[in-house]
Computed example of a mutant assay.
Amino acid sequence: MYDKSILDAAWGRFITLSACKAAEAGCTSVKMTPQQTSQVCSGCGVLVPKDLSERWHSCSSCGAELDRDENAACNLQHRYVEQGPLLTSIVGRFPPHNARLPLRRQPSAVAHPRL
């Protein structure tokens, strides 16, 4: 039980850091449900069941051939474009994707001479 609370805290910290990095880059960090994103074909939308050990996505319907993780990433991107943030949860409050924030840089400890 103690291990689960440590894992939850670490995951929460990761989400927070990801959101901060996205904000610094002028982006928005979005949490999405990854259910069946690697099993649905990103080319045609047909469900292609596969075991967890199967790393390659091959669709017999449209002929799409790509890595399982790339297929899932394409599906997540399609899902966000179609549904937007309404069915997802936005992490933190950030400016729109086209707004740019200045990057915070740490001052250098070593003085670099100009050449």
Rank of each mutant, 00 (worst) to 15 (best):
residue 69 D to C: 11
residue 98 N to F: 14
residue 70 E to Y: 04
residue 21 K to L: 07
residue 75 N to A: 05
residue 71 N to C: 08
residue 75 N to V: 04
residue 21 K to Q: 07
residue 32 M to V: 13
residue 44 C to Y: 02
residue 74 C to V: 13
residue 9 A to D: 02
residue 45 G to N: 03
residue 42 S to Q: 05
residue 43 G to P: 05
residue 39 Q to G: 05
residue 71 N to M: 09
residue 23 A to C: 13
residue 14 F to Y: 04
residue 60 S to L: 00
residue 61 S to L: 03
residue 65 E to P: 00
residue 43 G to A: 10
residue 106 Q to F: 11
residue 16 T to Q: 07
residue 111 A to M: 07
residue 48 V to I: 15
residue 18 S to A: 11
residue 20 C to E: 10
residue 7 L to W: 09
residue 29 S to M: 13
residue 88 T to S: 14
residue 89 S to V: 12
residue 13 R to K: 15
residue 109 A to V: 09
residue 69 D to I: 14
residue 78 H to N: 12
residue 27 C to P: 00
residue 106 Q to L: 13
residue 102 P to W: 02
residue 44 C to I: 02
residue 103 L to Q: 06
residue 93 R to Q: 12
residue 6 I to W: 07
residue 51 D to S: 12
residue 93 R to G: 06
residue 51 D to K: 13
residue 107 P to G: 05
residue 53 S to P: 00
residue 102 P to N: 02
residue 24 E to Y: 12
residue 25 A to Q: 04
residue 62 C to Q: 06
residue 91 V to I: 15
residue 88 T to F: 09
residue 83 Q to I: 07
residue 94 F to R: 11
residue 96 P to W: 10
residue 92 G to E: 10
residue 112 H to C: 04
residue 42 S to V: 08
residue 105 R to L: 12
residue 89 S to L: 08
residue 58 S to P: 00
residue 85 P to Q: 08
residue 112 H to K: 12
residue 44 C to A: 02
residue 54 E to T: 11
residue 33 T to D: 11
residue 41 C to I: 12
residue 50 K to H: 03
residue 59 C to M: 02
residue 28 T to E: 03
residue 32 M to W: 02
residue 111 A to H: 10
residue 112 H to A: 08
residue 79 R to P: 01
residue 36 Q to F: 15
residue 82 E to W: 04
residue 32 M to H: 01
residue 93 R to F: 11
residue 92 G to H: 10
residue 21 K to G: 02
residue 47 L to W: 09
residue 33 T to C: 05
residue 74 C to L: 15
residue 60 S to P: 04
residue 13 R to E: 14
residue 72 A to G: 05
residue 15 I to D: 02
residue 36 Q to P: 00
residue 66 L to Y: 05
residue 11 W to E: 06
residue 9 A to F: 10
residue 50 K to F: 08
residue 75 N to H: 06
residue 99 A to H: 13
residue 47 L to S: 09
residue 93 R to L: 11
residue 30 V to C: 01
residue 16 T to I: 06
residue 38 S to A: 13
residue 40 V to A: 03
residue 2 Y to H: 14
residue 42 S to R: 04
residue 98 N to W: 15
residue 27 C to A: 12
residue 77 Q to I: 10
residue 86 L to N: 01
residue 82 E to D: 08
residue 64 A to R: 12
residue 61 S to N: 14
residue 64 A to P: 00
residue 96 P to S: 13
residue 2 Y to K: 14
residue 91 V to P: 02
residue 107 P to Y: 07
residue 76 L to W: 10
residue 75 N to R: 03
residue 107 P to M: 11
residue 113 P to W: 10
residue 24 E to I: 05
residue 104 R to A: 03
residue 28 T to W: 00
residue 48 V to P: 00
residue 32 M to N: 03
residue 64 A to S: 08
residue 66 L to I: 14
residue 81 V to I: 15
residue 51 D to Y: 07
residue 101 L to T: 09
residue 10 A to Q: 12
residue 88 T to I: 01
residue 81 V to A: 14
